[in-house]
Every structure is written in structure tokens, then in C-alpha cells.
């Protein structure tokens, strides 16, 4: 059996890769993908802990996170499409309507 520490370290590293990607990439779609990566690594942590403690709470939590992630992607990509139609760019440096 694989120790839970390995799963935790792996998901921490992948979460950090996602966070670095959010900071580095300027394409809104790429930022969305990085957010999905981070959500997935959190799910892995929850499932690993659920296995460790021998109950299902973590799995249910991960399941709800999946539902939220699906909604977030659908709405977020609709917003990206709308922005592309208006401003013809997905570069988040050029989308600063809410920033003064």
C-alpha cells in the first residue's frame, strides 16, 4: 500500500504547478486549465485522506467539487467566448474592465 504522504506530496506539487501556471500564463483559457489542475490535485488529497481514515466523507467532498468544477468551466468558457466576441483577445492583461 502506498503511504498517504506520497499522495499528499504529489498533489501539493501538482497544485503548485497549477498555481505557477495561473501566474505565468496570460491566456484566459490556459488559466482555466491551470485552475482545473489545482482543483484536481485537491480532489486527490481528499480521496487519499478518505482512504486513510476509512470513511467516505472525502470522496463525497471530491464529488461535489467535481460538480462545481463542471459548472465553473461551462460558465467561465461562456464568459471567455463573450469577451473574445467583444475584444478579440484572450490575453488577461488586455481585459481590465473591472480594474482601474
Amino acid at each position: 500500500m502506498v503511504p498517504i504522504t506520497y499522495y499528499l506530496i504529489l498533489s501539493a506539487v501538482i497544485f503548485t504547478i497549477g498555481a505557477v501556471g495561473v501566474l505565468v500564463r496570460r491566456n484566459a483559457i490556459m488559466i482555466f486549465m491551470c485552475i482545473e489542475l489545482m482543483l484536481n490535485s485537491v480532489n486527490l488529497t481528499l480521496v487519499a485522506f478518505a482512504n486513510q481514515w476509512g470513511n467516505l466523507n472525502g470522496q463525497i467532498f471530491a464529488f461535489i467539487i467535481m460538480a462545481v468544477a463542471a459548472v465553473e468551466v461551462a460558465v467561465g468558457l461562456a464568459i471567455v467566448m463573450a469577451i473574445v466576441r467583444h475584444k478579440d483577445t484572450t490575453n488577461v492583461d488586455e481585459i481590465h474592465l473591472l480594474k482601474w
Binding site: N27, I29, F32, M81, T90
Partner: peptide
């Protein structure tokens, strides 16, 4: 969904 959107707006716009 991601692939559809990338296909619709053409990948890396304004890089």
C-alpha cells in the same frame, strides 16, 4: 469543452 472553445477562438490569440 476546452477543445471546442480552443477550436472556436483559435488557440493562442494575442500572445
Amino acid at each position: 469543452l476546452f477543445l471546442f472553445v480552443v477550436m472556436l477562438i483559435g488557440g493562442e490569440i494575442g500572445a
